Computed example of a mutant assay.
Amino acid sequence: MMGKNAYETYQMNSVNTASGSELTLMLYNGCIKFIKQSKKDMEAGNHEGKNRNIQKTQNVIQELMLTLNRDIPIAQEMLPLYEYMHHRLTQANLKNEAPILDEVLEYAVEFRDTWKQVILLNRQREFPEGAQI
């Protein structure tokens, strides 16, 4: 039990000390994790687990939509994509179709990977090679 409590404490500290960009990365990773688990549940015939994990994924996507800075032009382009993903998850849940989950997973992975690149570029600008910290 002690190991589980230590891990939960570590997770909570990670979230509490993360920057906004790191939190967004965590949301993308959570989205990917829940989609993959939904697919496993779907393949195993675990309808309750599939439903629960699809709903978790939808909650993550809703959080991503809420945290968009609408003053930035790219946010205006991201919002419809998030809405589309949310809608497709509903369809996957109702129709029990794994290919729809694969489609949403592709978007989530692409967004996550792009976001990682944004974080790296920002860090490089903040701390150029050879700069003194």
Rank of each mutant, 00 (worst) to 15 (best):
M1P: 09
M1S: 12
M2E: 14
G3R: 03
N5A: 15
N5K: 12
A6P: 00
A6F: 07
A6L: 15
Y7I: 14
E8H: 08
T9R: 13
Y10R: 09
Q11G: 12
M12H: 11
M12E: 15
N13D: 08
N13R: 10
N13W: 08
V15K: 07
S19N: 08
S19K: 08
S21N: 12
E22Y: 03
L25H: 02
N29F: 05
G30S: 11
C31D: 03
I32T: 02
I35K: 01
I35P: 00
I35E: 01
I35L: 00
I35T: 01
Q37T: 05
Q37W: 06
Q37N: 12
S38M: 04
S38C: 04
K39A: 07
K40V: 13
K40G: 05
D41S: 04
M42G: 04
A44E: 06
A44W: 00
N46L: 04
N46V: 00
H47G: 05
H47E: 14
G49N: 00
K50N: 01
N51Y: 02
N51W: 01
R52F: 14
I54C: 04
Q55A: 13
Q55I: 09
N59P: 02
N59M: 14
I61D: 01
L64E: 05
L64G: 02
M65S: 14
L66K: 14
N69G: 05
D71V: 01
I72H: 07
I72W: 10
I72N: 11
I72Q: 02
P73L: 08
P73C: 03
M78T: 07
L79R: 05
L79K: 03
P80V: 05
Y82M: 03
M85Y: 04
T90M: 08
T90H: 12
Q91T: 13
A92V: 02
A92N: 04
N93T: 02
N96Q: 14
A98S: 10
A98Q: 06
P99D: 11
P99G: 12
I100G: 06
I100E: 03
L101T: 00
E103D: 10
E106A: 14
E106Q: 12
Y107R: 01
Y107I: 06
A108T: 06
V109E: 03
E110F: 13
F111T: 01
F111G: 00
F111W: 08
R112E: 10
R112Q: 13
T114F: 15
W115R: 06
Q117M: 10
V118Y: 09
I119G: 05
L121D: 14
L121Q: 15
N122S: 15
Q124L: 15
E126F: 05
E126A: 12
E126L: 12
F127G: 04
F127I: 09
G130W: 06
G130S: 10
G130Y: 04
A131V: 10
Q132W: 12
Q132H: 11
